[in-house]
Design a binder for these strands. Structure first.
Lengths: 357, 357
DNA sequence: CACAGGACTACAAACGTTTGTACAAACGAT
DNA sequence: ATCGTTTGTACAAACGTTTGTAGTCCTGTG
């Protein structure tokens, strides 16, 4: 048979590997037209080609190591099988598992994940979203939404790009979101503290422009009210960080002496709170109980192990990916605006909470 | 009959936003040919077009919100401006910052990051690498290399895809790598322990098929030998995890009673070691000193705060990205096989190490 | 025996770029 | 006035797919 001498010296001196085989090459090798190869290779259209031809095509494609050119396919079909993800801090222990979860389900459906990290800069987020639009992503996963009407969401809506919000949502939800039930999260924490006997409880809140900050605060206020307790001891942190938590805790303690428990909107804020309590010579949980939110990795190893609200970060990413895939599969129905998937948080009780003395 | 009526109604996707403007649209709006628009938009070729025309083109492009179609450009040029990253565990605190660092420098140069997570499954890594090849990535960042000749590296070499190894390297380095100086890392730990007065020191090693595991062990042995100490107290863990660390520590203590210090190849292994020491009723550092490696987040908050070897993960990612960009800019010179960039680790002394009693 | 219809396959036209080449003015120098 | 240059623009050909349409060759039937 015409098995050419494939042992020739590399024809391309400039170090570039052998030209990747195309449909045309496979077609020649299999003795059919390139369009037939295309159909034979695609399970959806395979029924249009004779079994013998399909077999030959499959064999030759495998032998040559054919890989379809995604760019060409994207150009022709208008779909890139690319999903963009905008995350404020890839390495952040909150967002990393979200990304991992999303990647897992997207990869299973043949989509690839394009990640970019605008940090907390909305302008940068817009730039990166435009870049993703340029790459014709089929959909967007947004973990950076903030404020009332996030500019990135606006652009996606205008462009018709499906978008799913993760972890944070807009004040006026214009796009589907999957978030933990933030109010419920703080309710769990407060119920626990109240059950332990605490009455004078303060809240280290998150940034008020983030939905997590605003909703957890609301959850705190509602839970306290439900027990007829004073919910005025609140200090908002300027960011979800340990120093910001410390600053807020300092401020809260100054304005509200005698608090026996501090419920924090975030684990890092709780760690910052640990710091100022230690400074003040107070012991956790003997003098003051502290709770966190998120159950970040290692929260079982800090001293004392932190009582905190666990949220399923990986599940959040998975769920968001599913939502996006659903929208992609069924592009006829409109985005069903504010549909939010609320994930149930759970309380993990460790050693940072105890009855007041 | 030149223009046959083969204009089957366009499969216009329902509810899709207005069709994105193309070069042609901009050209019509600006009253020039589309090729002129292309050149005017590209800073490299802009000098070929009259200033007046350039101005008109720029204005119209901005007005229409033109965004080049990356797929079309990729098809034409053969370059996708996409970089693939294969990472064993996106959410892993070791790899997440690497990814973040790489993303930052790549984005600065107009490249986007395609991330995939094969976990520890080499077959899956190959599949995902092929997928990336299909997407015609311009280069690959590999954090999954293992063993003697990693199959993914082999394929990249065969295909001529530039690849840079991160954190782990191959036994026989066939591709450039950027890694921390793993031997030096363990030397630092041992020097510290010896300076404190320890003589009977054990090593909880990493998986021997990973370069980090093998090299850190070698560093342990060399440093011990340099002090004329016995380096035989070694137990390799089967994975970089807390339970695997615990298992190895248990085994090591069984075979070598009386060790006063345990140098671990990884922070998680150190935490597992904490667990078995606590089980045995021993206190860190009073009874046994423990050191880790990596300085993962939160290692300053565990009890006791862990003395560990810090490596610049983000810098690693950045450095790898730079290396890859260099290779992309200058595709003539061959890959310069085993060039490894060695990052200097530093020792962070905390409270898990103290003089032996 | 003609012919309808089914089963395959080939043809060709896009998709939106980049880029080599050809053409057309405009201009100065001979 | 002729001729090179220079400068700016237009033309057209790819890149590798997907997919509508038009054959072609059968096989079975009226």
């Amino acid at each position: 048979m015409p098995s050419a001498t494939r042992r020739g010296s590399p024809p391309s001196p400039p170090a570039s590997g052998p030209a990747a085989p195309t449909l045309k090459k496979v077609a020649e090798a299999a003795g059919v037209h390139l369009s037939t190869v295309s159909r034979a290779l695609n399970p959806e259209t395979r029924h249009l080609v004779a079994e013998a031809a399909t077999a030959r095509v499959l064999a030759e494609a495998a032998r040559l190591g054919y890989r379809p050119d995604a760019a060409a396919a994207a150009l022709r079909t208008g779909r890139s099988r690319l999903i963009g993800a905008l995350v404020p801090g890839i390495a952040n222990p909150v967002f990393a598992p979200i990304l991992a979860g999303a990647e897992a389900v997207l990869a299973g459906r043949g989509y690839a994940l394009l990640v970019a990290d605008p940090g907390d800069d909305p302008a940068r987020a817009v730039t990166l979203a435009d870049e993703m639009a340029s790459r014709r992503v089929d959909g967007l996963l947004l973990a950076t939404a903030a404020g009332h009407d996030d500019p990135v969401v606006s652009r996606c809506l205008a462009r018709g790009t499906p978008v799913v919000l993760i972890n944070r949502t807009e004040a006026e939800a214009r796009a589907p979101a999957v978030v933990s039930d933030d109010q419920e999260g703080l309710r769990l924490a407060i119920e626990h503290l109240v059950a332990l006997g605490h009455r004078r409880i303060g809240h280290i809140a998150g940034p008020p422009n983030l939905s997590t900050g605003a909703l957890r605060r609301r959850g705190f206020e509602a839970a306290m009210a439900a027990h007829g307790l004073d919910a005025s001891a609140i200090a908002p942190a300027t960011a979800y960080s340990r120093p910001a938590g410390a600053a807020a805790a300092r401020q809260l303690r100054a304005g509200h002496p005698g608090l026996t428990a501090l419920a924090c909107a975030n684990d890092l804020l709780a760690l910052g709170t640990y710091d100022v309590l230690a400074e003040a010579g107070l012991r956790v949980p003997d003098d003051v109980s502290v709770t966190g939110h998120n159950d970040m990795p290692m929260m079982d190893m800090v001293a004392p192990p932190l009582t905190t609200v666990r949220i399923g970060h990986a599940e959040m990413g998975r769920e968001a990916a599913h939502l996006l895939l659903r929208a992609l599969d069924d592009r006829t129905t409109p985005p069903t605006r504010g549909t939010a998937v609320l994930l149930r948080p759970t309380l993990v009780i460790r050693a940072s909470s105890a009855p007041p003395r």
